[in-house]
Amino acid sequence: MNSFWENVFVDTAAVYSVVILCTFVFLAVFELVTKYKNWEEIKKGNLAVAMATGGKIFGIANIFRFSIEHNDALLTSIAWGTVGFILLLLGYFIFEFLTPSIRVDEEIGKGNKAVGLISMIISIGLSFVIGASII
């Protein structure tokens, strides 16, 4: 049975499945902390929300990429991915806090593409910094 779990295809399927599940959970958390409904706004064609959400998805995936690359155990990768997500979420709150003249959530919800783009770039950029610090 050990050879089954050591098979590269089984390992890849397990990692893939867990990362997809974690991504859904993490996106649900982002949905809770934003004032707009991501998927409803995307369905309406709100490009700002799509860019911000895309940046979050990329950020989560990139953090997991670093986590998987640096850890052999799946549970350790999940733990580091979760820590990375929390830091990414913290970065989102810091962005909101450091721009008091712009209500980031409201602007993205209203379709402000410039704020959506900056939010996307922040998520992507932070994911590289967070990922690089994962051991």
Rank of each mutant, 00 (worst) to 15 (best):
N2R: 09
N2V: 07
W5V: 06
E6I: 10
E6K: 13
N7E: 02
D11G: 13
T12Y: 01
T12C: 00
A14Q: 05
S17D: 00
F24M: 01
V25N: 04
F26L: 07
V29M: 11
V29R: 03
F30Q: 01
F30M: 01
V33A: 11
E41M: 15
K43T: 04
K43I: 11
A48L: 06
T53A: 00
G54V: 08
G55S: 03
F58I: 06
G59M: 07
G59A: 09
I63L: 05
F64S: 01
F64N: 02
F66G: 01
F66V: 08
E69W: 13
D72C: 07
T76H: 02
S77A: 05
S77F: 12
W80S: 07
G91E: 06
G91N: 14
F93P: 07
I94Y: 01
E96T: 14
T99M: 11
P100Q: 10
S101D: 04
D105C: 10
E107P: 09
E107K: 15
I108N: 11
G109M: 13
G109H: 04
K110H: 11
A114V: 09
L117E: 14
M120G: 07
M120Y: 12
I122N: 05
S123D: 02
S127F: 10
F128T: 10
F128K: 11
F128S: 03
I130W: 15
I130T: 13
G131P: 04
I134M: 08
